[in-house]
Each structure stands twice: as C-alpha cells, then as structure tokens.
C-alpha cells in the first residue's frame, strides 16, 4: 500500500511538473526525486516479499493495510514538508525575502 501511494504521488507530481511552468518554478522537481527514488526502492522490497510469500503478498490483512496506508500518507506529508523547507530556503521568486524586508521597513 505504501508503494502504491508513493507511486501515485510520483505520477501526480510528474504530470504537474510536465504541465505547469509555475510548478517547475516552485521546484516541484524535488518531490519527483523523492517519490520516484522511494518508489523504485519499495518496488524492490515488494518484489523480494513477493518472492518470499507468493500471491499472499496481494492479500494483506486489514490491519497491515491500514498501517501501510497511514505510513504512505505520513511519507507524503514528510516529502511535502521537505519540499516546502527547500522552497523557502531557495525562495525562487524572492517572495520571502521581500516579505521580511517589508516587515523590517515597517518596524
């Protein structure tokens, strides 16, 4: 489930990166790296597990599925936080810098 959620996130961010120049300006590429990198790695994990347990891999227990879904959502949240921090540090449109300078001028 974590693999599935991460792959969907990777696909959605790729489409967004491809279609929106604003998204590219906002460094959405960072999300692409994280989601595709993790998807490939979890794919290996999935294949290894499939080789060990066979078709049972596709019928996880409800408890496992819930935990994996929760983990998948947490992974997306973490990646988004990393992206936001990177965006604020890079500040491609100088918005943060301007806002801080305005605040300083007003005070």
């Amino acid at each position: 489930m974590t693999l599935l959620i991460t792959m969907i996130a990777a696909a959605v961010s790729t489409v967004k990166w491809y279609t929106s120049s604003k998204a590219r300006e906002l460094k959405i590429g960072v999300l692409l790296y994280m989601f595709w990198g993790a998807s490939l790695m979890w794919l290996v994990d999935g294949v290894v597990e499939y080789l060990e347990v066979g078709a049972e891999y596709f019928t996880p227990s409800a408890k496992d599925m819930l935990n994996d879904t929760f983990l998948g959502m947490a992974v997306i949240a973490l990646a988004l936080v990393v992206w936001i921090v990177y965006l604020l540090i890079k500040d491609p449109s100088d918005l943060l810098k301007e806002t801080l300078l305005n605040k300083k001028d007003r005070s």
Binding site: T6, V30, Y33, M34, G37, A38, M41, A74, L78, A79
Partner: peptide, 12 residues
C-alpha cells in the same frame, strides 16, 4: 536526488 530522496523516505 533520487538516491538521497528515496533513502530518506525509506529511513523514515
């Protein structure tokens, strides 16, 4: 990017 990003999320 893929290696750091992927291993970071896996570490989590």
């Amino acid at each position: 990017g893929m290696l750091w990003g992927g291993s970071g999320l896996l570490a989590f």
